[in-house]
Design a protein around this nucleic acid. Structure first.
Lengths: 353, 353
DNA sequence: TGTTAGCACTCAAACGCATAGAGTGCTAAC
DNA sequence: GTTAGCACTCTATGCGTTTGAGTGCTAACA
């Protein structure tokens, strides 16, 4: 069966009407539209065809039609490939402007900015937003700074490129005198600075341990801490906002479903999965749309998820995801994300020279 | 009207039965209990009295009775003053043991431990838990460590007593040579270490600025960062867990109420209010129970909140709160909190000598 | 004087049933 | 190819009835 222009128009009309109302849409509603001036019967014939093609379904006999995942997929693919979204981006200017104000405030901490960003996106889209902190797998060690804390403790501050700072308090039992600490600190920086975690290999580790002499244990503890700083799990906090927006969509208003969904959002367990793997090639404007069953997290299979990858320079990147009902306004969400991404691109590039 | 022993027993029976079932409890149910071997009619007379005293109500005529806030208040006050809870604490040993395992793992970061603690408490009690990070108002500066980061940036690591570490990246425009930085660092530590934020007064600030010479601006920026490290808002993250437990209690199953509640929990706005002011005297086992309307947060007025203060040594303290339905098992919650508090006391005291 | 049996009464929740209405598929005519 | 007409389906809504739990009151009993 061919998907001719009229069928496409009708599908679009169904999707848009369903987006607004959340109710199955009937043939009469469509036939009343300006650019589809046919009788309900005609529309019905077309609808029957669309149903046969698997693009729409009726929840029950004598109900209107609702788009299927496949129908949405068609729509979304069209949306992502066309230039319309790029042109229509002025519609999303409002949130973008707000975002600029937000980002122009002094924000030493990336984390706080990301949290705020999640909030703004949730408020703008009326959907639930999740944002992962930046992901440093490809990152390199900038330097290490050791300080004695007294009480047999050492503070090891580990700084990675992209100005990622991690603190580790190491309890090594006995105090170390300042000179030894400086020597150890120098050795570590001398051997390891500028390296990625993969480049810190056994020969290097052995060398550091040798140079540390009787403090080989301490050096080892610090190396563990360095590995920890690069660690994915640890460096992937996820911020969410607008979880309660899902209450706005009656089709999700099943207490068990909502409960499961909020549980995932609160405990932040599977959100990494939901946001998908960060693409290693770092291709620009990498926007992904998961519709219904396509979402890789069980408790989100009644929703759709749109994700985008943001770049923080130096190969550091993270993900933003927007969770909404299947009938989410994909156009608006994609536009908003695109606008946000380009905003972020501009902002993150500046401070890094 | 006198609250004699039999009335008290009946009130207790109503509270306990309502706790289990969530349904209003009738006279027949009570009369079937072993230690209240009276006819339903007798019980009804007593119930009428209890109602007159404002301790119980009927949701409507021909329904059983439900405890009022006042009824719960009586019960809870009795609970908190009696020795029963202390004796019955072995009932709460299970969670306590679990907690010990949890805390014995290496946990450099207090934050992670608090998060886990919230999770364990939520799982044990089946209620929602919130935990504030420690509160450092009375805290003192341990030391400052400055490092050059290149690109006109300085990393200022600020360490407070209690091993609280704060990172600040300061963009000062131009790079500072290592020697100047060391001198500045020495001056700061020399003048400020061991002081509380109140003790860092204008003469001291002037002195630091003088010593910094042409880098007075930078010194000022660092002092701002120090003030920020002491700042209450900043150092008060709140962790929540088990938000979805509220779905378990049908009396809260109003979508709007749930939505409001979860919103507060997710955005973590009013949770400080809900947890109440940290008592300055730091009295031991400071357990507070807010019942229904007593809760100072609007969206929690259909719930009860039990809070406890934990001590982290050196005057640093934080709060734990448990949110549940009015018919919460106060006894279990109070016991669990008491047990957790004493566990924490033990653990936090050890590492600080 | 406290306790109990009996009884009429109330009210929310559950149930059954009829109705309305939205929407369809099919057929036949234009 | 399009449309009017019609019978049909199924959900949602409303309404009256029934059920059952629980009460308050009164009168009798110990």
């Amino acid at each position: 069966m061919e998907l001719d222009d009229r069928k496409r128009k009708i599908l679009l009309a169904i999707i848009q009407n369903y987006q607004d109302t959340g109710e199955p849409v009937g043939s009469r509603t469509i036939s009343k539209m300006d650019d589809l001036n046919y009788s309900p019967a005609t529309i019905r014939n077309e609808m029957a065809d669309l149903e046969e093609m698997g693009l729409i379904v009726q929840p029950h006999t004598s109900a209107g039609r609702v788009p299927t995942d496949k129908g949405y997929r068609l729509y979304v693919d069209h949306l992502l490939t066309s230039d319309e979204t790029a042109l229509a981006t002025n519609g999303a200017q409002h949130p973008a402007t707000h975002m600029e104000q937000l980002l122009s405030k002094r924000m030493d901490r990336v984390e706080e900015m990301l949290m705020r960003m999640a909030q703004v996106l949730a408020a703008n889209t009326q959907y639930t937003t999740m944002v992962t902190g930046p992901h440093y797998k490809q990152n390199k060690l900038k330097f290490i700074q050791l300080s004695a804390m007294g009480g047999g403790k050492i503070l090891a501050v580990i700084v990675l490129n992209g100005n990622i700072v991690k603190n580790n308090i190491l309890d090594i039992g006995a105090d170390v005198d300042q000179e030894t600490l400086s020597r150890l600190n120098f050795s570590l920086n001398n051997n390891l600075n500028g390296l990625s975690v993969e480049e810190i290999n056994l020969p290097l580790i052995t060398k550091v341990k040798e140079e540390a002499g009787e403090y080989a244990d301490v050096a080892m503890r610090i190396l563990d801490a360095v590995a920890g700083a690069f660690d994915k799990e640890d460096s992937m906090p996820v911020y969410t906002s607008g979880a309660t927006n899902i209450f706005k969509y009656p089709e999700l208003a099943d207490n068990e479903k909502i409960s499961n969904l909020i549980d995932v959002l609160e405990e932040k367990k599977e959100l990494g999965t939901a946001l998908g793997v960060v693409s290693p090639d770092g291709s620009k404007q990498d926007i992904q749309v998961y519709i219904g069953d396509e979402v890789p997290v069980e408790s989100m299979k009644d929703c759709s998820v749109v994700t985008a990858t943001y770049q923080m320079g130096e190969g550091v990147q993270g993900k933003i995801g927007i969770i909404g009902p299947r009938r989410m306004d994909y156009q608006k969400v994609v536009e908003t994300l695109k606008a946000t991404m380009s905003q972020l691109d501009g902002i993150f590039k500046k401070p890094e020279e």
